[in-house]
Design a protein around this nucleic acid. Structure first.
Lengths: 329, 329
DNA sequence: TTGTAGGCGTTATCAT
DNA sequence: ATGATAACGCCTACAA
């Protein structure tokens, strides 16, 4: 393996000089800079990132904390896009990244989690799919030992940012559109997880809409479960005119139930997953660009590393309908 | 951060002694072993894996090389299970793992890839979704610089193992079952990728079956594309009695086409993804346990690390039908 | 502007 | 059986 030493020899300078060139230090003459870069080229030198991580207290290693829901595969799509988006962006910043799943730390304490992350020289964390019940992760954030970026969870402090779309407006928009395209004022809202971060926001949006448009709003918690949405629809679907769901998965569950009941109700979802293309029925949904969200999270982590304070970063969304012929490839 | 030095101080021994205890070296007395472990407990010491990786030429860092197909989300399910299975097992062996996608190295040469992996102190690699066209990856394997385990690609040498189900038998079985459950002897086989590893095996299986059962076999390449399968079905579906597909995704594409053509043909798939539950039509398929496959790959990597030669590891499969109510949760 | 030297946390080789 | 001590490859004051 060619090391910085080899480069230094070849360039006829000291190791530290090479290091300075490589890390964009000031006070290096153009001449030596060129000599060094030439040697780097010729030797195909790639710095050993493990050694770098050990040596410097510099940032550069980040962990993706993914709340994998192993049973629902529409979730797989979202998580996969999160991971893919983050890894791509991380390459730009030359961050090393390790991927971790919540379930790996199921019975661990914060301290154990922290020590594990330290043992990996992790300095930044991106958290996907956090819900209020994940106490350990919250303690982790509160510890302020690491720079954090949470996706879709409005947890900000000096070391923590949040990247998210405007769930209130998005939920409002998609429901409004669906209502205007159809008739009736009785809407069943199948919300997400009780006490979920986005859940409360979205319910608030629905209440606003109900007030403005004079709707009779029935709110039930579907726990982001397709099955639950299905059952709620069997129970309450008939007496509603329109069904608004807090996720595509639940929208599909609801729609399938309606089909089995042999009645029609317009249903709208949330997320814009390709799975929506398989249902046969066109539904409005909110399209989020999960890869872009995740890439932005990496960027934001970099900002935090550079001394910026935590903040909310809002990302765009769009209203779409997803057809089978759109998603296949 | 508590280091090995702190442990040594607390236990009243030398750093090297602590290291020996921690790494199960021989020639350490029970007494000191206990002293050290007690100090470890009390200090909640977790060894810094980055430092360990730098210091020792020991194995322990592995890379997951995933051929992410960003457009097909049934693929997401499979890849997610691969990743999840590997990460779980890796924890048991205390392997550090980094996840990489093929597209990250799209225009890179083998040498660049090798240097990157070296810069990460990677000693083992698991490869998912390899096809014959991925030249760089093949060169990587041939270089024998790393221990490799390929999933579903029969590439073995002294440093490379393969973990896979028996694709020939599986394809034979699922097709046989479907044929026996229905009538007619004209079967359209929508194969996978031209020159794909599993593709050729499965085509061989179909030919065997055709001979034994006196079938008229029509083989077309669907490239594992749902869209392609859909179009092939529009073209050739009518004159077949039965359609056998090399993936669930293609089976779904085919089935959807049949539905639009308003004709019925039994279709069977391959993989056992949950997406099959959304089609409404029951289809036979081969269920693979992707997490188990991936976990086995990690195990096999460990075997290779321990001096074992590369080999083929065969995993079980089963024939199933997937219902909507089975998959939702 | 450049180079020297100490350190990051471990592992591993040698003495003892 | 135990303990110094030199790597591992890089970063970073600090000295020159």
């Amino acid at each position: 393996m060619v090391s910085i030493k080899d480069v230094a020899n070849k360039a006829g300078v000291a190791i530290s000089t090479v290091s300075k060139v490589l890390n964009d230090y000031p006070n290096v003459s153009e001449a030596t800079k060129e000599k060094v870069m030439k040697a780097v080229e010729e030797l195909n030198f790639v710095p050993n990132s493990v050694a770098a991580a050990l040596s410097s207290k510099k940032v550069g290693r980040i962990a993706l904390l993914v709340n994998l829901n192993v049973s629902a595969q529409a979730i797989d799509e979202i998580d996969m896009r999160y991971i893919s988006g983050a890894l791509q962006k991380a390459m730009d910043y030359r961050f090393d990244v390790i991927t971790l799943f919540f379930f790996m730390f199921r019975d661990k304490t914060v301290d154990e989690l922290i020590r594990y992350l330290q043992s990996q020289s992790i300095s930044g964390i991106i958290i996907y799919g956090l819900s209020k019940e994940d106490l350990v992760i919250h303690e982790l954030i509160d510890s302020k030992m690491f720079k954090c970026v949470a996706i879709d969870a409005p947890l900000m402090n000096d070391t923590t940012s949040c990247v998210s779309i405007d769930h209130i407006r998005a939920q409002y928009d998609v429901a409004y559109k669906t209502i205007k395209e159809n008739t009736g004022n009785k809407v069943l809202y199948i919300a997400g997880k009780r006490n979920g971060y986005v859940t409360d926001d979205r319910i608030a949006a629905m209440k606003m809409l109900a007030e403005k448009e004079n709707l009779v709003l029935d709110v039930k918690y579907g726990e982001f479960s397709e099955k639950e949405a299905r059952e709620l629809t069997f129970k309450y679907g008939k007496k509603a005119n329109i069904i608004v769901c807090a996720s595509d998965l639940m929208a599909i569950g609801s729609m399938k139930a309606l089909q089995e009941m042999d009645i029609f109700r317009p249903v709208c979802g949330f997320d814009g997953t390709t799975l929506m293309g398989y249902v046969g029925q066109q539904m409005n949904t909110v399209r989020q660009d999960f890869e872009a969200l995740s890439a932005k999270a990496v960027e934001e982590l970099n900002n935090l590393f550079n001394g910026q304070k935590g903040r909310l970063v809002e990302m765009p969304y769009s209203l779409v309908q997803i057809n089978y012929t759109d998603i296949i490839v």
